[in-house]
Design a protein around this nucleic acid. Structure first.
Length: 465
RNA sequence: GGUGCCGUAGCCAAGCGGUAAGGCAACGGUCUGCAAAACCGUUAUGCACCAGUUCAAAUCUGGUCGGCACCUCCA
């Protein structure tokens, strides 16, 4: 599998540090509110990456953090009149609920920043000792950016460019806490009323970037395979993580950096600060969760994706085609007595095309194309295929949709006898050419939430979608 | 100002040197008592525009126009 590495800006063959095992760290949300669908993009995309790597036979250690200490959390706690921790726990639970709805596999570890203070302080101490960080007069601790000759290697900007583009910030630097305007806090001295932890530098709390460095190191070791997140994290978040981690650990922090493009609304970045966002929760209540996940897969993960309600509705229809195909497969299986084995070949082709797409930097739109080609073959050939063929085809179909994490809402409930009786009555009415009665029974079934469809092999009953 | 990305049918979106996948929508047809689902067919001689390279370009080069992002909290 090849993957575009932000660090080198080329697609590279993805090779783990340890054969057959991937260690992945994906930056999780700051839990101060419900997540919006922009936040859901990396969650869905990198869950799909995880699923594919597992499908390929790898073990995947997947760590995704919860940022539960941050300025926005403190602000929100003030607004809601509760503690920061209460806010954080509340929205963490809501976030997990959304993840479950989106069929996102639970991370191997879901660490919280506030539960890694000691590890954070340990890195801070290392950095100070090696001269990469210094304590300011107010108790802040800053990373000395000029001490890291590699600084800027991820965002591909040099310090001068970063600073020259940043005139406003320079003017704001009216205090003399920092040696250099580009230096960033790894530890912040507590202001009155803020949550704090004791440290050798006084009461304070961790800077944002250091949390991820500490949690990645704690749960995945000094060098990880893949570090991922939204492209807006490239600078400063990930650049700073690299600086801290590599200066503290003396080795490469992450071999591959993957970043997803933005989810836009009216072609502009969706963000809480711009107040132009939809929460996953509110959309799930209208369309369900699954079309949201599917929507994330309709575009390449590195391209911008523009959200509209129409698109989400279209996604729901597309999913319907997939569900219908899968149901038809089951129906064909129940009535299998054909001998055609051509579909076996089609299943192999579908799998190959699907994997070729996924191997090429997680090209999910192309993978979906392969899936839908397969759907057409199934719909055309399943009726007279052999049982063995259909079983293999169903397995491949489930594997591929499973990799994408879709089609997880199949209802396999038994059809109640009462319904089956009605269907039988309709069949009799049809035999007697009593169309009025047959249609009345069909209407009755619809009312009860079931759909009858007539096929050459008899009536097919299913739950209405 | 610096650094990147993008512009493919009504909508979404692959393709990234060899003659335009797929989904949604629309229209016609087959099947059906009628439906539904499905299947078949139609819908871009053309991929923002202009030059150039090449036997061959949506794909490479240069330019023009338009859009977006990062350099500040952000997935």
């Amino acid at each position: 599998m090849k993957v575009f590495n932000t660090l080198t800006r080329i697609k590279e063959e993805l090779k783990p540090l340890h054969e057959g095992e991937f260690r992945i760290y994906v930056c999780g949300p700051t839990v101060y509110n419900f997540i919006h669908i922009g936040n859901a993009r990396p969650v869905c995309v990198f869950d799909t990456l995880r699923r594919y790597l597992m499908y390929l036979g790898n073990e995947v250690k997947f760590v995704s953090n919860i940022t539960d200490i941050d300025d926005k959390l403190i602000k929100r706690a003030g607004e809601e009149g509760v503690s920061m921790q209460e806010v954080a726990r509340k929205y963490e639970a809501e976030f997990i609920k959304d993840c479950d709805g989106l069929n996102v596999l639970a991370p191997t570890v879901r660490p919280r920043a506030t539960e890694h203070i000691q590890q954070i302080l340990s890195i801070v101490a290392d950095l100070i000792q090696s001269g990469h960080a210094y304590v300011a007069k107010n108790g802040d601790v800053y990373f000395r950016v000029k001490s890291d000759k590699d600084y800027g290697k991820l965002c591909h900007l040099n310090l001068e460019d970063l600073e020259s583009g940043n005139r406003e910030l320079r003017h704001q630097m009216d205090d003399d806490l920092k040696e250099d305007p580009a230096d960033f806090a790894v530890w912040k001295a507590a202001k009155p009323g803020e949550p704090y932890w004791d440290s050798p530098y006084g009461k304070g709390r961790p800077g944002w970037h250091i949390e991820c460095s500490a949690m990645a190191r704690t749960h995945l070791g000094n060098t990880i395979d893949i570090h991922a997140g939204g492209e807006d994290l490239i600078f400063p978040h990930h650049e700073n993580e690299i600086a801290q981690s590599e200066c503290a650990n003396g080795c490469t922090f992450a071999n591959y950096w993957m970043h997803n493009g933005f989810l836009n609304i009216d072609n502009h970045k969706m963000s809480k600060s711009a107040n132009n966002f939809f929460t996953v929760r509110e959309l799930s209540e209208v369309y369900g969760y699954e079309p949201i996940r599917y929507f994330m897969l309709t575009g390449h993960y590195r391209s911008p994706l523009n959200y509209t309600a129409e698109l989400l509705a279209d996604c729901k229809t597309s999913l319907q085609r997939l569900y219908t195909c899968r149901d038809n497969l089951d129906f064909a299986l129940e009535n299998a007595h054909g001998a055609n084995e051509e579909l076996k070949k089609k299943a192999v082709e579908a799998k190959e095309k699907f994997c070729a797409a996924m191997d090429d930097d997680l090209n999910t739109p192309a993978a979906l194309g392969a899936l839908f080609d397969f759907v057409r073959e199934i719909n055309t050939l399943s009726a007279d295929s052999s049982r063995e063929t259909l079983e293999q085809v169903a397995q491949v179909f489930d594997e591929l949709t499973g990799v994408l994490g879709i089609l997880y809402n199949r209802k396999k409930e038994e059809i109640p006898q009462e319904i089956l009786d009605l269907v039988e009555q309709r069949t009799q009415a049809k035999k007697a050419k009593d169309w009025a009665k047959a249609d009345a029974i069909r209407a009755q079934l619809t009312e009860k939430g079931y759909v009858v469809e007539d096929t050459p092999k008899g009536p097919k009953v299913s739950l209405a979608k």
